[in-house]
Design a protein around this nucleic acid. Structure first.
Lengths: 194, 194
DNA sequence: ACCTGAACACCGTTCAAGT
DNA sequence: ACCTGAACACCGTTCAAGT
């Protein structure tokens, strides 16, 4: 019995996570079927239950991976470099770019099926992402941007702003009255954050 | 054969819309079952198909109704009254309150299953809602708030802001690092919009 | 330790048939 | 004109059994 044996897949857990992530991104979360997934991988319909207690548990693991990726992206745009002058703007663009590059994953991460709140990995990594945002807002406010007593309001509102822009963009909600909004989002966010 | 006859329900279409809306709000969209709905109303599992071509068509009708309600709420807070001084703030609060009072409906309206884009009723009523926002931003900018050449950026960013706040609130995403954020959202939005 | 097959209780949807 | 019942092709999940 070898590692490539069909009976013992060997890395079924990883294969499931990988295939599920791909399937969600290409067909949407609501079309995801555990049985289908198993079939595609070449394993029985019930094999996934040896690695995940339920479909929901699989989705929680995927959400956790999403927050890890987001945190990594944001921390990367925090590093010193040519963009240091407008760090908040850079981070805002990173955030929205993440959502645009993985819209279905982003929706899953922030959909109140409660995926996020359950797992410790989600909490940890969303905390990391939030930390990047807090530092950027702090830095910007220390240069005199907005009134200091509103610090918490500014932090949450900046987050709401990028989260909202992400939603409008990935759900195709930009009104046609404003032409080319989808191409101009970066400058528009920038203008509003100035 | 009377109107209360079970065989001919009489107002099945309305009963379906009504029950579905209630079911979505109390159990979540992903739990909604057409068969269950029919059973609750007291009609056969396939009766809904005499009034809606598919589950999706039912959801589109509900989304349209949601946009009608939202537009009505926003237009009401546009009327002259004691709150005229800060009309943009009033409208922002109305918007977020709508989302908070009907979270599942709000999610459905703005979920990229494409419900919104299909129907003419959705387009019309989301246009009405957007119009209220545009007028409020216009009025505010005419008092010197922000630079005029960024008008479109301001309109879309204000929408993103309220849409984002709505999402953070109804999906329970407010970080615990900032205490009582759920109770203080109105003043925080206000502070950021000043 | 990991996977399968049959079985259970569900789905959305179609269609011929009923009233 | 409106509704039903049987049927089809799916689901997630459980569990005894296999290797």
């Amino acid at each position: 019995m070898t590692k490539t044996d069909h009976y013992h897949h060997g890395a079924l857990r990883e294969a499931l996570l990988d295939s599920a992530m791909r399937a969600i991104e290409s067909d949407g979360l609501e079309r995801l079927s555990l049985r289908d997934l198993a079939g595609t991988i070449g394993v029985s319909k019930t094999a996934p239950y040896r690695h995940f207690a339920s479909k929901r548990a699989l989705l929680e693991a995927i959400a956790a991976e999403g927050f890890r990726l987001l945190a990594a992206d944001l921390e990367r745009s925090e590093e010193p470099g040519p963009g240091t002058a407008d760090r908040l703007g850079t981070i805002a663009r990173s955030y929205i770019n993440f959502a645009r590059s993985r819209p279905a994953l982003y929706r899953l991460m922030f959909s109140k099926l409660g995926y996020s709140l359950e797992s410790e990995a989600c909490r940890l990594n969303s905390g990391r992402a939030f930390g990047v945002l807090v530092r950027a807002v702090d830095a910007r406010m220390s240069t005199g941007w907005r009134s200091v007593e509103n610090q918490e309001a500014v932090i949450l509102s900046v987050w709401a702003l990028v989260h909202g822009w992400a939603g409008l963009l990935i759900d195709g909600l930009l009104p046609r009255q404003i032409p080319a909004a989808e191409e101009r989002w970066a400058e528009m966010v920038q203008a509003f954050l100035s």
